[in-house]
Design a protein around this nucleic acid. Structure first.
Length: 270
DNA sequence: ACATTATCCTGCACGC
DNA sequence: TGCGTGCAGGATAATG
C-alpha cells in the first residue's frame, strides 16, 4: 500500500528516468480511472507534451507537463508508476501508458484499479488537489508546536487525525499505527487529551519513521518491480494481531476505526 | 454539523 | 473441487 515513503520513492525514480521526455502518444486502458474526465480527452491532451518536472504532495504524484498542464496521479492501494524500456510490452494490469519518442514509456499499473489519473490546469490542480491537502510532514512547517496547536482542537480518535489528509498529508493506515505505537498513544484517544511531551514524541516519531521508510523504500525500489510494506519497512504493530509486542510482550490487538483495521499494543498504548 | 457507512476494485484466504 | 463470502483499504459520496 503506497503511503508517502513509497510515493516518494516512485517520484525520485521518475525524476531520474522521465524528466525531459516527450510524450508521443498516450492510452487509457481503464476509462474509470480518469473520471469524470473522458479518458480519450486525457490521452489526446497529454500527447505532444514534455515532462518538465515531477513532484510529490502527500500521496499524490504531480507530473508537470509543458503547456501548463499537470498529470495528477494517485496510486490508490495497489498502483505503481514507472518507466519501461519498451512501451509496446505492457503488463496486463496497465491502466494507462504514455509512449515517449525514444520507445520508452511511462506505465501506470494498478491491480485493484482504485488509483486515479487526471490532467489538470493550474486552477484545477489548486482547487481539486492542493487545497485539500494538509502540511507536508517532512517540511519545516511541520513542527512539534504546529502539531500541538492542531492537537488542541482535535476531538477525533488519534488514528483518524493522523490519517486525515487535510491535516497532515501522506500518512496511511500503516504509518499512522506505527507512529502511535512509537509515541505510546492509544489510537482511540483524541489528541486534545494527550500531554505535550507525548505530542512531541509523536512528532519526532512521524518524522523519523518517514525518513527511515523513504530510505528503505528507495533502496527496495531500485530494481524494476513493486514493493510491499514488508520489504520497505519492519512493522512493530501493523499486521501483528495476536503476536507479542516487541517492547512489553503483550499481544498486539486489532480494532476497527472508521471501518479500517488499527493495530496497537494494549500494554504500551494507553 | 458532525460521525458513520457505502462505494469503487480485484485477488486471495477461508469455510462449507 | 468449487463456489460463495468476506476482507484488504485510500478517498470520496452518501447517509444517518
Amino acid at each position: 500500500m503506497p503511503e508517502l515513503p513509497e510515493v516518494e520513492a516512485v517520484c525520485r525514480r521518475l525524476q531520474d528516468q522521465a524528466l525531459g521526455a516527450r510524450i508521443l502518444q498516450a492510452g487509457i486502458q481503464r476509462h474509470a480511472i480518469t473520471r469524470p474526465q473522458p479518458a480519450s480527452w486525457v490521452a489526446q491532451e497529454a500527447a505532444g507534451r514534455r515532462i518538465a518536472h515531477i513532484e510529490r504532495r502527500g500521496k499524490h504524484i504531480l507530473v508537470g507537463l509543458s503547456g501548463q498542464r499537470t498529470l495528477h496521479i494517485h496510486l490508490g492501494m495497489t498502483g505503481n508508476l514507472y518507466v519501461t524500456a519498451d512501451v509496446r510490452l505492457r503488463p496486463a494490469e496497465t491502466r494507462a501508458w504514455f509512449a515517449f519518442e525514444d520507445g520508452r514509456g511511462l506505465i501506470f499499473e494498478d491491480q485493484r484499479a482504485l488509483g486515479r489519473l487526471h490532467l489538470l490546469d493550474p486552477g484545477e490542480l489548486e482547487r481539486n488537489v492542493l487545497e485539500h491537502l494538509g502540511v507536508e510532514p517532512l517540511s519545516p512547517e511541520f513542527t512539534a508546536a504546529w502539531l500541538a496547536e492542531k492537537a488542541a482542537r482535535a476531538r477525533q480518535p488519534a488514528k483518524l487525525f493522523l490519517m486525515d489528509q487535510r491535516i497532515v498529508a501522506g500518512l496511511g493506515n500503516i504509518y499512522a499505527a506505527e507512529a502511535l505505537f512509537r509515541a505510546r498513544i492509544h489510537p482511540g484517544k483524541p489528541l486534545s487529551r494527550v500531554r505535550r511531551q507525548r505530542l512531541e514524541r509523536l512528532h519526532a516519531a512521524i518524522v523519523s519513521l518517514l525518513e527511515q521508510a523513504i530510505a528503505s523504500a528507495v533502496a527496495a525500489y531500485g530494481a524494476p518491480g513493486r514493493f510491499t510494506e514488508a520489504e520497505s519497512f519492519a512493522c512493530q504493530v501493523y499486521g501483528r494481531q495476536g503476536e507479542p509486542c516487541f517492547r512489553c510482550g503483550r499481544r498486539i490487538q486489532r480494532i476497527l476505526q472508521g471501518g479500517r483495521s488499527t493495530y496497537f499494543c494494549p500494554g504500551c498504548q494507553r
